[in-house]
Design a binder for these strands. Sequence first.
DNA 1: ATGGTTGATTTTCAA
Length: 256
Amino acid sequence: MKIASWNVNSLNVRLPQLQQWLQQAAPDVVGLQETKLEDHRFPDAALLEAGYRSVFHGQKTYNGVAILARDRALTDVQVGIPGFADDQARAIAATVDGVRIVNLYVVNGQEVGSEKYAYKLRWLEAVREWLADELRRHPQLVVLGDFNIAPDERDVHDPATWNDDHILTSAPEREALRQLLALGLHDGLRLHSEEGGIFSWWDYRQAAFRRNLGLRIDLTLVSDALREATLEAGIDRTPRTWERPSDHAPAFVVLG
DNA sequence: ATGGTTGATTTTCAA
């Protein structure tokens, strides 16, 4: 089962690219972030034509998440973080073929010390409590999404800039990610590669993609129970090379 | 020193 995560930065703009990518990459499950679409505008009929059922949780202009599954049912759908009042559409979960999928669009945080940064850390604490419960109920768990945190120095092009004072790499953010992993989750990509320079996001400015000035902030985490079954993990840079791309590329794992 | 780009709604905001 191939499971992917892609921040599409507006599904309205990117639907043709999503259709193209579904056809050529043939993932079984996909978590989308930044759909930026209210639920009544979600293109579920068009995706069904491509063979994918969908569940979604969106809002106008900002945020928005969805899970797609090819020729499979999505059951036990959870919208938002249980018990956490949130006016931003950033989390959705569903079960596919006995595997629990949690799809997150983690708060960006804007700047270390800002109100949005405090919200990011509060949000991640609520996620940690939620995932502890999900793991008890669903040992076969995949947590994927745009984490807006680069796990370590290998995951940034310039550690001098992306340092402890910087958003996406500050110590409290990395510690929050470590606490998620400490629940019994593994960074899928790191099960198969120790290399640096493998990125999932490149700023639109300064020809960052061409120069590979990126970060790895889109992650696919697998639970202890799925660790041995994780055959492959990577980032598919292809859609980032297309005309008018998302600033993110899809991250994926393959479970055997 | 601080800009550069994209998307959705504006006369900026969020990323």
